[in-house]
């Protein structure tokens, strides 16, 4: 960049400098350098997001509906796949075991009828027999969790087993718990 002070001494108005030949070439040069650096930075950013992720499968068959007791929470899948099967009078819910605060796995405390997160103490309701559909399982009531636990897509497979899809989530605060696949109606 040229010395503006010197330009003024030479009788040149600095305001005209920017679009003089020298000024313009200087700007263009710096623009090109910054542009190239920006492009390299952006490419690196994109580089960190691969097109394909190798992540575990999300579809599970969890057995037949009659295997689950009414008004009970099944912990059969929490160890391996991080969800609970909640059975109410009206049917089934697949409740995510990922705390909505910072992603720890809450503990199901049967005696207190709640889920309690060990990381920051968030608490979520488990079962209310008076509210079978869509149920209060997963609604936050204490601690820092900002919203209820998520529920997964749940349905019946052709062979009569319950099938859970962890790839599709339903969030209560968006009113999605009453969506058709968020709750498996079953009264048998």
């Amino acid at each position: 960049m040229a010395n503006l002070h010197k330009l003024r001494e030479e009788g040149c108005d600095p305001r005209n400098y920017t679009w003089s030949r020298r000024g313009f070439l200087g700007l263009a040069g710096w623009g090109a350098v910054l542009g190239a650096l920006g492009l390299a930075g952006g490419s690196f950013g994109r580089f960190m997001y691969p097109r394909v992720l190798f992540e575990p499968q999300s579809l599970f068959k969890v057995g037949y509906p009659d295997q689950y007791e009414v008004n009970k929470i099944s912990e059969a899948w929490i160890e391996k796949e991080r969800f609970w099967i909640v059975r109410t009078v009206d049917g089934f819910v697949a409740l995510s075991g990922i705390c909505t605060h910072l992603g720890c796995t809450p503990r199901y405390l049967a005696s207190e009828n709640k889920f309690k997160c060990p990381c920051h103490g968030s608490g979520f309701y488990a079962i209310d027999t008076l509210d079978p559909y869509p149920g209060i399982a997963g609604v936050n009531f204490e601690g820092p969790a900002p919203r209820p636990l998520e529920r997964f897509k749940i349905g019946l497979a052709e062979d009569g087993q319950i099938i859970v899809d962890k790839g599709t989530i339903y969030r209560s605060e968006k009113g999605q718990w009453v969506a058709p696949d968020a709750f498996l109606k079953y009264t048998g």
Partner: peptide, 9 residues
């Protein structure tokens, strides 16, 4: 173990 959170974490 990504599925088991120690208490407390």
């Amino acid at each position: 173990d990504p599925n088991r959170t120690p208490n407390p974490s």
